[in-house]
Nucleic acid binder design. Structure first.
Lengths: 276, 276
DNA sequence: ATGAATTACGGACCCCGTAACGATA
DNA sequence: TATCGTTACGGGGTCCGTAATTCAT
């Protein structure tokens, strides 16, 4: 019966050319390797080696056998890899979201309901989210509207209002409310990973420049110390506005967002029944 | 390390559905199979089975694994087969011949010169012989002319004259010689495995019918006891003409044949130098 | 109560490393 | 003489079958 370990030793020998070096590389003794090669040869049932008293090399058949063996070993590895990958995919819940804000809470709840699962999250543009959900890349999507695709089931998850966050010395700091167009032309601080909000505000404030900060800490530092306006949210999980700043409501209806959890209808029981 | 035997047991279990039946089919005990499946599962490192107290079935991952395993087993078998076939082809000399007459002698000489080799022979039509030699199907070809392909090397091996073998009461029995056309229209006895001669005589004697005998013994019987004419050859290895029959030379130059041994030029040393 | 899967136990066998040996460059 | 491959030997581990156990139909 063919033994994959011996096959592996055989391939290693083919690569290095001598038993002693192969033995060293494989961390086994020479004698073991000698016996393995004898066993391999008897398994194939045909001569694979040309031997002199202190030299052993592959003959033509042996070289073919080594190539074939390497192929089989790769296919064996491929089998293991595919099966493990299939299992991993089956026990991973991948969440696509339009904003990072709600993810910590969402992930915490998913982990609690599916303690055996791995939770993976991605922030993507809105069209990609529904595409991914359709294709199976995501099992669950956090979406800022209710998608009307009959293939999907959705359920309200949270509401969020966007606010301006202005330094107290800003010229609009005393206003009761502002529209996005009021602030058009102002340069704003923006945390990069803000998701779909970016598309909204850059559309409504085409003349503004947005200073993207990729690192959360730098962003916080800048908000604390610069005079540039930024955005805030009314979500409970968010920290209070930094001192020397005020938050001002935005009048545009678009900044009032209802987030929906979306999944395929056939997975409704798996995902959505556990949320209020 | 994945074990080939266990992989095979795993696939068998997948096919039959229960450990006990698989054990029976594999001629091993149930307990061995239980342990093998546990080992397989730990090798893959992911759950492959759904178990109840007295029932074990493959889960979805397990079914994938079984499919993949079956593939790997087939590939392993394929590897063994190809290597063995390569070896066999390397130690088999396949001879293509236009006639069976000289084969026993030829095979005897080849076996003597290459005692480690297996000698295989085939009788084929002339164009197929050269095709086969070119393609490597044959290493050696016995051909009734000298082929002019520069890829080949050829060497005279024997000469043969075809004779008529007539019952003494035949109307031509007293002739000194005959042409094929003289006998055109006569029905002849013919031993089937006569090779390229058949094409020659049926061309030159289009009005004759040839009574093919597939079995050598029947043919001999008929030659002894019927009044139908047949053919004979002047090759030394052939037995003398049966009594009540005479052999008469044929005048057509085509029935004087020189046989050549043909091989590829690069194999000249291997095959042709050992013949006179 | 029969049959299926698992676990415990004991023995046989196999596999490996050390060491000795033979041969070669 | 140093290196390489092969063979002998002994110990440890592994693998298998029998038998006992548990659970389900």
């Amino acid at each position: 019966m063919i033994d994959y370990r011996e096959l592996h030793q055989f391939v290693t020998f083919h690569h290095v050319g001598t038993l002693s070096e192969a033995a060293e590389r494989l961390h086994i003794s020479q004698s073991t390797l000698t016996r393995s090669m004898q066993k391999i040869e008897s398994e194939f049932g045909v001569p694979l080696f040309a031997r002199t008293k202190n030299r052993i090399i592959l003959n033509e058949t042996g070289r073919l056998a080594a190539q074939e063996a390497e192929l089989v070993l790769r296919q064996t590895e491929g089998m293991l890899h595919r099966v493990r990958e299939f299992d991993r995919a089956n026990r991973t819940i991948t969440v696509g979201a339009c904003t990072p804000v709600l993810l910590p809470d969402l992930v915490r709840r998913l982990s609690y309901a599916h303690p055996e699962a791995t939770i993976a999250t991605e922030i993507k543009k809105l069209p990609l989210l529904l595409e991914g959900l359709r294709a199976g890349t995501y099992q669950l999507v956090l979406f800022p509207t209710r998608p009307d695709d009959p293939e999907f089931f959705s359920q309200e998850f949270a509401r969020e209002n966007l606010l301006f966050c202005l330094p107290k010395k800003h010229r609009f700091a005393k206003r009761q409310q502002l529209s996005l167009s009021d602030m058009n032309g102002e340069n704003m601080l923006l945390f990069q990973d803000i998701g779909f909000w970016y598309d909204l505000v850059s559309e409504k404030m085409p003349d503004s420049r947005f200073l993207l900060q990729t690192e959360r800490y730098s962003f916080m530092e800048l908000v604390e110390n610069s005079v540039l306006p930024s955005f805030a949210t009314d979500l409970a999980s968010q920290s209070p506005p930094p001192k020397d700043r005020v938050t001002i409501p935005i009048t545009d209806p678009e900044v009032q967002v209802v987030y929906y959890l979306v999944c395929k209808k056939d997975q409704r029981k798996t995902f959505l029944t556990m949320f209020p």
